[in-house]
Design a binder for these strands. Structure first.
Lengths: 356, 356
DNA sequence: TTCGATCATGAAAAGGCTTTCATTGACTCC
DNA sequence: GGAGTCAATGAAAGCCTTTTCATGATCGAA
């Protein structure tokens, strides 16, 4: 490694060091440090003089040196399984805003997948775990759970969206069940129980699991004996929604005449796919097909017909995770907290009941 | 600041230090360091032994200490004016992927706005400029240009999407003009020149400026004497598109009978707003209104009717910026390079010419 | 055998900062 | 006037690594 050159009496990159400030102000480096970190103990006159020099020299403390001693960088790692589309975008936005508010920086990583081969953080390619003060990690499937084993015991960690809160860990959870149940009841009002479907993402996905289970529970609670084909699992993609609906159209011909079916999608993209396929097939929405999405991303209100969706406060999830992480860093001994965020059905055009 | 406790013979957070490894392996810390950074100069036997101890102790070099001496962190700052919606989401995704590929970490910031008051990096709240190896910054309007003045001379910087490449700086540019001209010609084929409009974002916005100028130039090149009301400036929002079209409907009644008008929107969201307002007003698209968006975000192909749009390779813009930044860090003396990415019209349903 | 080379390794400096501990005056109180 | 306080400051240790320079050892060649 080539060390960068050093200007005259200045740190790397031409930056002034605490030394330079001290000399220029005729004080010791200890005093300069105190002016910055504990101004109360230095005399006003000295402080003023030091501040003037700091400003004049454009001195900024070297974060590496600071980190070496304080073991803090004010950088937080926000690890997601992916960063694609409105969903993750909102999450990041919320996290960024909150981090900013709390005076932290955000290191974003899309590494939180089940690692195909290697154990996780042992490469430079992994998370910069030595550099960050904490880790907020979203884990969406059991396979990625093992990532946690490889992170240092003492690193503050907040788990996002993991089905079960892990004992002893801070957690931010989304109450998928309530929203899913509400949406299911909404579909049930106006559509027979045997004509209501759940079309989710991957079966292992925690969210899909929670949502489908609430769907099933609600149906059964209403006395419906659910057929296996009433739930389907695929991917969180528009294309999968299209596939599913086209498949339904071609297979369930007998059911088609009997009026509208209801679909609760695992997320908005799947719902949109269903909507698209319906439009392509000339099926009227919500006349013959009532659709409810999940997450209530911006897509839901942009698309026509407007998509009913279960609102998940994505930005708040991100924000809450950062807030919980900051709290844990502040007090590493505090009781682990579980933050649970509510969901609620937003009814728009795509799912209005017949005659509504 | 409270220093975190130190385990027995271990660094902060219970991490083993290079000392511990050295002792355990009966070598000096220099040798341990060499095993990691320059294995060629240490004997195979020693190297093997050291590696075993490193693994056994789970030793990971302390990035602060490393940074203090190498002045490098392998963290790059990616600064955007905002992180909202598909546009920035794609940018981040491309940047993240490329950073990952090159072995860097990405610090994302949404700070690249015209700072309301303070000068920029002098707070903890600003960019962690002392910590990062380089800065990729997207500047979308002249007001934010001053941010650059406050960043250190010697910090590698790549500018994204700034209208003029700054002399002596690496730059990633989008060739807005070509795509905008192409879209304009597309609208002109089938719609009279005085019935074609540009509806952009903020007037100062570099992209909007480039796009509107190409629009005007193409119109004038075709012999059209453009009326002032043929260009309008607002915000990059769905709502602004709605507003504009509703305004047009109520003001330009005389023109309404004469067949379709053409609208080139400053981005996809504005185009969507126009589309929505048209649908609400019962105006057929593309029969009476031909719309072309800009950026070709996923929205464009999700929405119905499918939106024609000028494709901007957003993920590649992010990736190219990171690549350029890495190259500059690698060789700080190299000639500044300007990467220019092409745009191209993607025609979908929303803008088909009459009879097409 | 002895002299340079070459190779493997260690000692120690340097990097910039925070913090403890000690020192120096200036005051207060008897 | 001397003892005891207190406020302001400085000296120096320590955080963990990389890298330079020096030291021995080994080896081939003279």
């Amino acid at each position: 490694m080539i060390r960068k050159p050093r200007g005259n009496g200045a740190g790397g990159r031409g930056q002034a060091s605490i030394q330079d400030v001290a000399e220029e102000a005729n004080v010791s480096i200890a005093t300069v440090s105190r002016v910055l970190n504990n101004p109360a103990v230095v005399s006003p006159a000295t402080a003023e003089k030091v501040r003037e020099v700091i400003k004049r020299l454009g001195y900024v403390p070297n974060p590496f040196a600071q980190g070496l001693i304080t073991r803090a960088s004010r950088v937080l790692c926000f690890a997601l399984p992916d960063i694609h589309g409105e969903f993750y975008s909102e999450l990041i936005r919320g996290a960024d805003a909150e981090a900013h508010r709390l005076g932290y920086h955000l290191l974003v990583s899309s590494e939180a997948r089940s690692a195909p081969d290697a154990t996780w953080p042992d490469q430079s390619a992994g998370l910069a775990l030595g550099l960050v003060d904490g880790l907020a990690i979203m884990i969406t499937e059991p396979g990625a759970m093992s990532l946690l084993d490889s992170v240092d015991e003492d690193l503050p960690v907040v788990l996002i969206d993991v089905e079960l809160s892990r004992p002893g860990r801070d957690c931010v959870l989304v109450d998928n069940a309530t929203g899913a149940a509400e949406a299911t009841r909404h579909l049930l009002a106006g559509t027979a129980g045997d004509r209501v479907y759940f079309v989710g993402g991957a079966k292992e996905n925690f969210d899909t699991r929670a949502r489908s289970e609430a769907f099933l529970a609600t149906l059964r609670g209403a006395g419906v004996s659910v057929r296996p084909d009433q739930t389907a699992f695929g991917r969180y993609e528009v294309e999968w929604g299209r596939e599913w609906y086209m498949g339904w159209l071609s297979s369930a011909t007998a059911l088609q005449a009997k009026g509208p079916i209801g679909v609760l999608a695992g997320n908005d993209e799947i719902a949109l796919g269903v909507l698209q396929a319906a439009e392509d097939a000339g099926v009227p929405v919500p006349g013959m097909l009532r659709v409810v999405g999940f997450d209530d991303t911006r897509l839901a209100s942009i698309v026509r017909p407007k998509l009913s969706s279960v609102r998940v406060p994505l930005a708040e999830v991100g924000g809450a995770a950062i807030r919980a992480l900051a709290a844990r860093i502040e007090d590493p001994e505090k009781q682990p907290a579980v933050t649970r965020l509510q969901t609620a059905l937003v009814v728009r055009e795509s799912s209005r009941a017949p005659g509504e």
